[in-house]
Design a protein around this nucleic acid. Sequence first.
DNA 1: CCAGACGTTGTT
DNA 2: GTCTGG
DNA 3: CCAGACGTTGTT
DNA 4: GTCTGG
Length: 234
Amino acid sequence: MCGRYTLFTPPEELETRFDATPTRPLSARYNCAPGQELPVVTNDAPEEFRFLKWGLVPSWADSESVGNDRINARAETVREKRSFADAYEARRCLVPSDGFYEWVDRGGDKQPYRVAFEDDRPFAMAGLWERWTPPTKQTGLGDFGSGGPSREQEPLETFTVVTTEPNDLVSELHHRMAVVLDPDEEETWLHGDPDEAAALLDTYPDDELTAYPVSARVNSPANDGPELIERVEA
DNA sequence: CCAGACGTTGTT
DNA sequence: GTCTGG
DNA sequence: CCAGACGTTGTT
DNA sequence: GTCTGG
């Protein structure tokens, strides 16, 4: 984990909580999924919620698909891994959330659970972001003869969520969980030096957190509505 | 030296 | 089984 | 994370 | 781009 989360806190509350303004409208989300463009607060523009695609694509990747299997980065090794080292040093971000989902394998089927604060207040997950420019395609003589410039390839900005060992509550469900930051740690995660940031990658205590079963409707990323966070019988 | 990988989760 | 899409 | 696709030739 | 493996 974490591979799915919620972000339905009203925009005004999020703007106050993170002291940032959105670059496009924030909508209530009950099923944020990898591959989607989601609001994050990056270190280089902390006054904004910027929409980045979930699934970090390293700058050197030759294909965008490299991001498919980089939706999470292990806290224990994030500084060593080539895919994340640069981003860790220079491009950390906050991933606003108000709960994340975990699936418990029950031999055959899987029961999703939602983990959140008891009062559903928003929090930040530790994230890294990256900017990737698609390789320029060789168009032969086209650029010279045709007069017009070749089509500009827009850089793609992506992010990943850092994971660590779970607390006792979440360990009942899963053996990994997202790094949840204390509000007073957020500034350091964004702007501290790498060693200071590393000290924040620990397991969030389970005080004030709760976990409860939810409908398997959350399984499909196409579903996204308040019914997804309703408690069901496990 | 060059070639090939570069990741996590979960499962066996 | 594995990759892509969301 | 899970769901859904996974392909070509040829025709409209 | 940079590291690991051979």
